Amino acid sequence: MATYAIGDVQGCYTAFRKLLDVVHFDLKHDKLWLVGDIVNRGPESLEMLRFVMQSDDAITMVLGNHDLHLLMVGAGITPHHKDDTIQSILNAPDREELLFWLRHQRLFYFKEKYALVHAGLLPAWSVTKAARLAQEVESALRRDDYQKIFTQLYGNEPTYWLDNWTGAERLRVIINAMTRMRICSPDGHMNFSYKGSLQTVPAGYMPWFDVPQRASLDSIIICGHWSALGLYITDKLVALDSGCIWNGQLSAIRLEDRKVFQIHCDKSIMTGC
């Protein structure tokens, strides 16, 4: 049995299945961790979502910002973006089953020395604390009145964490850190506008994972979200968004020996990505 982690698929199901073939993934014996953003931008979001939903316990995923966007659009809270490719899900006969299942997925997951999150963790959050905070959001998303909660979750403020935040502000900071953050100040103020490379990070900010003595350093964080960063692996970080949707690569890592597998996401294996 092996455990693989794969970066942002974003609806590129054909490329995803090609990568599973490359690693000889066996649904009955292996495990797969997905860093989120399994849908949107690529042409096969419906196929991707159905595959993950039907894979029982073989696949563990965390929610990314595009997955949450699908839920918001499906709930009628926010309109489509011009480059969305989620209409096939919204038109599907099993739409409600798919959205219900997605709404019940994790925001954060950890096992032994590894932690899985879409974007990142604020400097003050240990992995144990992050797990507790994620459960607050997960519980809110699963409530019967989730549509009311959705109306309060979008926005960039607050940009920092306080333990005494309550209500929508508290949930919004947790979601934004775990699904949108790339950089922050040393004291944990997030910047959501920057999407560039490591070399051009604005003054006063740094990659969230480079903040000195961040509380999550006792674990290896597996994440995605930052395509301009590309595949980026250190002792304490495995960043897997290598820009498949932008004709880059789709990347996987086998956790047992940290062997990396990649495929090029060109038109020969992707129908429109």
Results as ranks from 00 to 15, higher is better:
Thr3Leu: 12
Asp8Asn: 06
Gln10Phe: 05
Gln10Ala: 06
Gly11Leu: 03
Cys12Ser: 09
Phe16Val: 03
Lys18Ile: 06
His24Asn: 12
Leu27Ser: 15
Leu27Lys: 14
Leu27Tyr: 14
Lys28Ser: 15
His29Thr: 15
Asp30Trp: 09
Lys31Gly: 08
Trp33Gly: 11
Leu34Glu: 00
Val35Gln: 04
Asp37His: 05
Ile38Ala: 12
Val39Thr: 01
Ser45Ala: 14
Leu46Ala: 10
Glu47Asp: 08
Met48Ser: 09
Leu49Gly: 04
Phe51Tyr: 12
Asp57Trp: 10
Val62His: 07
Leu63Thr: 08
Gly64Gln: 04
Asn65Glu: 02
His66Glu: 08
His66Ala: 14
Leu70Gly: 01
Gly74Thr: 05
Ala75Lys: 11
Thr78Cys: 11
Asp84Tyr: 13
Thr85Val: 10
Ser88Met: 03
Ile89Val: 13
Pro93Asn: 14
Leu99Glu: 01
Phe100Asn: 07
Arg103Ile: 09
His104Arg: 13
Gln105Ser: 09
Glu112Thr: 12
Tyr114Ser: 11
Tyr114Phe: 15
Val117Leu: 02
Gly120Arg: 02
Leu122Phe: 00
Ala131Gly: 12
Gln135Leu: 15
Ser139Arg: 13
Ala140Phe: 05
Leu141Trp: 01
Arg142Ala: 15
Arg142Ser: 13
Arg143Asn: 06
Arg143Pro: 02
Arg143Gly: 07
Tyr146Trp: 13
Gln147His: 15
Lys148Tyr: 13
Asn156Met: 12
Pro158Trp: 07
Pro158Gly: 07
Tyr160Trp: 13
Tyr160Met: 13
Trp161Ile: 00
Trp161Thr: 01
Asp163Ala: 08
Asn164Trp: 06
Asn164Asp: 09
Glu169His: 13
Leu171Asn: 00
Arg172Met: 11
Val173Ser: 01
Val173Gly: 03
Arg180Asn: 07
Asp187Lys: 14
Gly188Ser: 05
Met190Pro: 06
Asn191Cys: 12
Gly196Ile: 01
Ser197Pro: 08
Leu198Ala: 07
Leu198Cys: 06
Val201Asp: 00
Pro202Phe: 06
Gly204Trp: 00
Gln213Cys: 14
Arg214Glu: 12
Ser216Phe: 03
Asp218Glu: 13
Asp218Ala: 10
Gly224Val: 05
Gly224Phe: 02
His225Gly: 00
Ser227Asn: 05
Ser227Cys: 10
Tyr232Gln: 02
Tyr232Met: 07
Tyr232Val: 02
Ile233Phe: 08
Thr234Ser: 07
Lys236Met: 07
Leu237Asn: 12
Gly243Met: 02
Cys244Ala: 10
Ile245His: 04
Ile245Lys: 03
Asn247Glu: 15
Gln249His: 13
Gln249Cys: 09
Leu250Gly: 05
Leu250Glu: 07
Ser251Leu: 03
Arg258His: 11
Arg258Trp: 09
Val260Pro: 02
Val260His: 03
Phe261Gly: 00
Phe261Lys: 02
Asp266Ala: 11
Met270Ala: 11
Thr271Pro: 09
Thr271Met: 14
Gly272Leu: 08
Cys273Gly: 04
Cys273Arg: 00
Cys273Pro: 03
